[in-house]
Write a protein that binds this DNA or RNA. Structure first.
Lengths: 344, 344
DNA sequence: CTGTTAGCGCTTTCAG
DNA sequence: CTGAAAGCGCTAACAG
């Protein structure tokens, strides 16, 4: 393979091939490819033609090596398969649109060990910033993030000791609000359905919020079913509600760690001929599409998943642009609100 | 900024910094970082220590420039927010695990124009292979893919003129099978609910299959509701079934382009006091989690979304490894099967 | 097992 | 507006 590409090999053409064909230098081609740089329109036209004839596509890896800007932003979410987090990912990509920044997305399956691996894998690509879900990381993961020298945004949570910037809300407070809202409605005997381990930080915070709110109200917070490895599925929600009704048949309302398990519980109740909310009320968390559409429609907590992503990405681009670190607010609190529907 | 990094600046340390600190050459550091290369354990230990002290992370962009292997695989799906496609994405990442290949994921929002942009954006990163959803692309997109000189895998479909390799199934045949299965069960008056435009290729193929099967059976294929821009939502499914029952009150079974719209239709029927399947039967497509869990449980077509991703990634890695192009089978057909449940 | 040299394809920087 | 030289951080290839 000669250095001079003859266009007949399968080797991809380089910028030099384009330059030669257009009768200019590579530098001029580089300029023509970048917005807002001054190239005479005649030259630009010749270059464009050469690019099309050759089927040239810019090699950005090479470019970023010399410009020291990769154009990557990394984001790590627990699951790609959960519409709450994929809404956040959508928010990020949408906010990145037009900035020339491209998203490098990874998911951890709710494992901090996997998160640590991902952090390293992504940092090898030299992203210009990184967006994480939650504030729990391995010590090594945390150290890598701190030393990376790029803006770090933790989302979906309010970490006690943020690494850098935060866009999130308190999952505990959100669950407390749900409990209070339902208590005000007259419910007294509350149950909670969630996953078993502490793997899902946000899940355990919601459970803690549940307990806190009931204790404050002087109500029992014992009715807690922990079932299945988070994230718990619809089917597991169905099984959990059965356990709950066996152990505590007088439960008035079952709060679930997410709408998905709540939906499973709701359907299972119907299958068993229980009327919701008359025999048992059910509420979820997350305001997934399903909550608004199921029958009866589900009471839940809306947490603006898309907005979390959008704001995280905005904060990131602002921080990247504002050379001086720390320009945007360090913490952005995103809203949550209880959506009362027919299931309670 | 001097070339020699003193560790006190915010500049990220380079391999040379590590080498100097460990008293070896950069090349040895490079070797120590790569699996299966021979470095004495004493040297390796010094290097490892230097890496930890410095918090060094390999710069893969630089590495790929010289090794001419980026370690990227690109995948483009219609929506990240749809569990069918995110299952495919999961299948891809899982199959890529341990290969040293990293996924570059993008979504098109069901727009071929957006797909074209994404193809170019991804090719700029010089992926070693690319996985697409469906066989419809813009002419320019197709040309770029053909000229990229990397394996291309089209999935979720059986394109008439594949660019390269295919892992998919015929959406039309799958829908025909559903119609036949239900006709065998005695249903005669079939309705179809799907989106309006041809944006969603797989959606229109399913509709075409619906029509074909009914014509073959000598049954009417007129009851078609086209409602909403694909992908149609649960809520739109709910509205569509209402229209259908207004226009053709004698419809016996409503087939929906996906489980999501089918679920919306199912819930709406319950809301209106219609018994499913007695008053009207409903079937979906995709076998989403919700189909197995809703009440009544939904009849649908399972299409092995995860397996499509897994097999596509396997075919890709095989093709990348087998230097000689075209080693694996060009077309892998993935299975589909009708899952009969309570809704029909 | 380790080092040296060269260069991947582009952009920065400086000249013209 | 355009070009030439240098080099980004790493690894291939070869030498020892």
């Amino acid at each position: 393979m000669t250095k001079i590409n003859d266009g007949k090999t399968t080797e991809a053409p380089t910028m030099n091939d384009v330059a030669r064909r257009a009768g200019v230098s590579a530098m001029t081609v580089s300029r023509a490819l970048k917005e807002g740089s001054h190239v005479s329109s005649a030259t630009r036209e010749r270059i464009t033609r050469a690019i099309n004839e050759l089927g040239y596509v810019l090699d950005q890896s090479a470019g970023s090596l010399s410009s020291r800007r990769t154009g990557f932003v990394a984001a790590i979410i627990p699951s790609i398969n959960n519409s709450n987090f994929s809404d956040t990912a959508r928010g990020i990509t949408d906010a990145l649109e037009g900035t020339g920044l491209q998203l490098l997305l990874g998911y951890t399956n709710y494992s901090v060990e996997r998160e640590e691996e991902l952090i390293e894998a992504m940092l090898r690509r030299r992203p210009e910033g990184i967006i994480l879900t939650g504030g729990s990381h391995t010590p090594k993961g945390r150290r890598m993030l701190e030393q990376a020298g790029i803006p770090v945004i933790e989302t979906w949570d309010r970490p006690a000791q943020p690494i850098d910037k935060v866009v999130g809300f308190s999952n505990g407070e959100a669950m407390e609000l749900l409990v209070e809202t339902l208590a005000r409605k007259g419910y007294r005997r509350f149950g909670y359905i969630g996953g078993v381990t502490a793997r899902d930080t946000r899940g355990s915070q919601r459970r803690a919020g549940f307990v806190r709110a009931l204790e404050r109200l002087g109500l029992s917070s014992d009715r807690v079913i922990s079932f299945g490895v988070p994230p718990i599925s619809m089917e597991q929600g169905a099984q959990a509600v059965v356990s709950m009704l066996e152990r505590w048949p007088d439960t008035q309302v079952a709060l679930c760690v997410s709408d998905l398990s709540a939906f499973g519980a709701l359907m299972e109740c119907q299958r068993r001929g229980l009327k919701v909310p008359q025999d048992i009320a059910i509420a979820g968390f997350g305001d997934y599409e399903i909550a608004a559409c199921c029958h009866p429609r589900m009471t839940t907590v809306n947490v603006d998943c898309y907005g979390i992503g959008r704001q995280a990405a905005l904060k990131l681009t602002q921080t990247i642009q504002a050379q001086s670190p720390g320009t945007p607010e360090p913490v952005t609190l995103t809203g949550f609100r209880v959506i009362e529907r027919e299931s309670t």
